[in-house]
């Protein structure tokens, strides 16, 4: 699979299968295409050559409803966390349940627990624009996992938080992975990767020179 935004190829000769229950880190220099790669992974972008399959389905053959259905199985944390700015953060975290017609009343306990875990228990009623960068990231992660999706793709989920909080967020993802969820985290933070390596079987992928490589033992 390859991808280009129009100029030269940004990613080429990429071949990867995310097996269920696996845990991956994705690293690479800024601008190397980590975010682009994640977007290809959840179908926001289609490859310019080769093909991408989501749950066995070719993304190019999927219509918009198929994409919506696939996204309910994939929790995504964007690098620039996007929210509905007119709704309190708790409602934003609940959004995946709301749009899929799930009864949110049933999940109030989950929401409370999750918000507490990411340290937003007291900020549940705040509007997204009033949140700090780190708070937004935590909220984005909470939103990505509230539906207990099969796959979680997180783009720099710990970019703006302190070490302690980043450990908590990592813990959340590791717990999910232990429940059998597939996790991929794009990050620059080598300490985070080291911390994870002690607890899960994590593979580290590196984008360099447009290619995806398995990083060596130097980490």
């Amino acid at each position: 699979m390859a991808y280009s935004y129009g100029g030269g190829e940004l990613l080429s000769e990429i071949s990867l299968k995310l097996s269920p229950g696996s845990f991956h880190f994705l690293t690479g220099p800024s601008g190397s295409g980590k975010t682009t790669f994640l977007k290809l992974c959840y179908g926001a972008l289609s490859p310019t050559s080769g093909d991408v399959r989501l749950f066995g389905q070719d993304v190019r053959a999927m219509d918009r409803d198929d994409h919506a259905m696939a996204r309910r199985r994939i929790g995504v944390v964007h690098q620039d966390c996007q929210f509905l700015d007119h709704l309190p953060i708790a409602d934003n975290v609940m959004l995946p349940l709301t749009v899929s017609g799930k009864d949110s009343i049933e999940h109030v306990a989950d929401l409370k627990e999750l918000m507490g875990w990411v340290g937003l228990g007291k900020r549940a009623g705040a509007l997204p624009p009033t949140l700090s960068g780190g708070e937004r990231q935590r909220a984005a992660l909470a939103r990505a996992v509230i539906m207990s999706p099969e796959v979680v793709l997180a783009d720099e989920p710990t970019g703006n938080v302190d070490w302690e909080m980043s450990q908590r967020l990592l813990q959340l993802l590791i717990e999910l992975n232990k429940m059998g969820k597939t996790i991929m985290i794009a990050t620059h933070d080598l300490n985070l990767i080291r911390a994870a390596k002690g607890q899960v079987q994590a593979r580290v992928l590196r984008i360099a020179n447009r290619k995806l490589q398995l990083a060596g033992a130097d980490l």
């Binding site: 259905m69 996007q82 959004l95 749009v99």
Partner: peptide
């Protein structure tokens, strides 16, 4: 865009 990200259908 946000609604789509969290799996909202067009309808």
């Amino acid at each position: 865009a946000v609604l789509r990200l969290v799996g909202a259908q067009d309808s």
